[in-house]
Design a protein around this nucleic acid. Structure first.
Lengths: 330, 330
DNA sequence: TTCTAGTGAGAAACCGGTTTCTCACATCGT
DNA sequence: ACGATGTGAGAAACCGGTTTCTCACTAGAA
């Protein structure tokens, strides 16, 4: 079970390791016959270069670190899958580190990754207006931020919440809804503000009235959606279109409406946010919702990091990636 | 931003790199004064050894691979967190590879990890009766299986589904329930069979009748739970205790019962499985459910792998880890 | 024919550590 | 006073690659 080294290949091909290395990597000057022969021998022997040794001289480990504070969350895994998918053909692997909200743990992980000579770091989280509990600004490697706050001069990749909101509200308007409200999370979240602003703007652009009361702030829970419906239906002025801040709220809203025997989507249309399939598909009826394309976001984060690692120029600042409306039954 | 090497430390301390290495690692023969001095110098200079170089000679990379087919799932992340938590103090990092159900992708990832000289692999999945789409039996590194099927002579770590079932059903019995049924997933799943068997056994041991109809097989969805309740309540013989195969089914059951104005937990008690907090806590009332302690499972998988890597003896076969009943309002 | 330029290949240094082996020197017993 | 033993430290080899630099040889130009 001994690994085949480049020495074995060189010996078997009757050349020096220098020539073998050059032949296999397509660098330096080697005649095409020699190159072909060495490649053949390497293939026959099942030679696989030791990435550690290679990294040592190349000063590139083909490894990136993914830092997240979203241990149980639903955001990290799709982002991770996207990163990994976008980088695997370049031979890049991903260290995933879940650091909860623990600064010491974060530091430990960052140090460990640095010691292992990672080429760069992608920081990701669950809130775009909070940064991870560790300072990544003066590291010897580039850092890309995804779904979490980073410094202004870094690349930060986020979903386009405004555009997603326009998609959602536009859909409601096209469905003929006129009394549209927005039930969302705590106003302390930046995305909540952003979506609320886009919400008002879209209504206004469509010439629809937008009373102050049209946005209800609460928590990110089903319970809040349920409760909001109870409040709304205790008054006379009832909406016919509801745009929710996430799928859990939407789920609570739909359940609340169904308990009142309100026909979805004929009497009231509901649109969620996140496209968390496990929630959206099991809601009765299945939720129409906004997908943030997290996998694509991860992929772009990976590509951006790789360009930075290669010293290529990358536009810094916030990148906004479009969301997609997924139309289902609500 | 140049990294400090052991040469810098040695030079600054006026010793050879051999002595510096021995002093810093506590190996070889070095006088305690010299050792102290070198350590001091290393600390002053902020020396951090290059893990790549170290791995090259030590033939230990302090890196393990985690292979999973559970891209969006809720199982992988807790397991991962447990592994990482249990290994980080030993300086071990984790490569996470989401391989979906794609054999080629799996092979690519495994090869990449092997090239990077990982010390071992943990294979994890979403079904204990399915193996990953890649053969891990003849690898040059040890493999531990968690929540997925592995060969008989390997270490496979699983939750103790039977014990979890006993906890759940025992709880119902202690609550005075006498007509207990089990609503669960497809009978093609091994865990479904296992839990059903433990279910019957527990009832029998308590001297309760166990009609064949007491186990209802369906899908892992809320919809199925909802539907099962509709079927049950269209007959006369109604249960007063329901043990569900997962929290989503339980969620459907609870919703179905609430729609029928049945008082939970006074008229009927419901127990779920998984303790998927996002579901269990938002159910009204919150779900009493079985927690599989996935984080602990991950931790143990990590420890077991590390022992194998160190060449220590580890008992092979299936390890069953106890589940914990989490009592909430249902 | 001689000088120059170009080509293919290898020796050796290097990346940054670890480890073996050797050796000078101090200590001890007799 | 002398050999046996023990101790601290360094030279050098090594891990498995990559890369620079040198060199022999060939071909073309003058």
């Amino acid at each position: 079970m001994e690994r085949v080294t480049i020495y074995d290949v060189a010996a078997a091909a009757g050349v020096s390791t220098a020539t073998a290395s050059k032949a296999l990597n397509g660098t330096g000057r080697v005649s095409s016959e020699t190159r072909a022969k060495i490649k053949q021998v390497a293939a026959d022997l099942g030679f696989r270069p030791n990435a550690l040794a290679r990294s040592l001289t190349r000063k590139r480990s083909f490894t990136v670190g993914l830092l997240t504070d979203d241990t149980y969350g639903r955001f990290t895994l799709p982002v991770m899958a996207g990163i990994s998918e976008g980088l695997i053909d370049q031979g890049v692997s991903v260290f995933l580190c879940a650091i909860e909200n623990n600064p010491e743990l974060a530091k430990t992980h960052v140090d460990a990754m640095l010691d292992k000579q990672i080429d760069g770091i992608i920081a990701t989280g669950k809130r775009v207006d909070r940064s991870l509990p560790v300072d990544l600004t003066h590291l010897p490697v580039p850092v890309v931020y995804a779904l979490t706050a980073g410094p202004d001069d870094a690349v930060t990749i986020l979903p386009d919440d405004s555009q997603g909101t326009r998609e959602a509200v536009g859909h409601l308007i096209r469905k003929g809804r006129r009394r549209i409200i927005h039930i969302t999370g705590p106003s302390t979240f930046q995305v909540v503000e952003e979506r609320a602003a886009a919400f008002f703007q879209t209504l206004q652009a469509a010439g629809l009235s937008s009373p102050q009361a049209a946005v209800l702030y609460g928590s990110w829970s089903e319970r809040w959606g349920h409760e909001a419906v109870a409040n709304l239906w205790s008054h006379d002025e009832r909406p016919d279109g509801i745009f929710c801040g996430n799928d859990q709220i939407a789920r609570g809203v739909v359940d609340g409406l169904r308990e009142r025997n309100i026909d979805i989507p004929n009497d009231v249309s509901v649109v969620g946010f996140d496209n968390w399939e496990i929630v959206a598909e099991q809601t009765r009826p299945p939720l129409t919702t906004v997908d943030m394309n997290l996998k694509e976001l991860g992929r772009q984060a990976g590509q951006a990091l790789l360009r930075l690692v290669n010293g290529e120029a990358v536009e810094t600042g916030m990148w906004r990636l479009p969301c997609t409306l997924v139309v289902r039954g609500s």
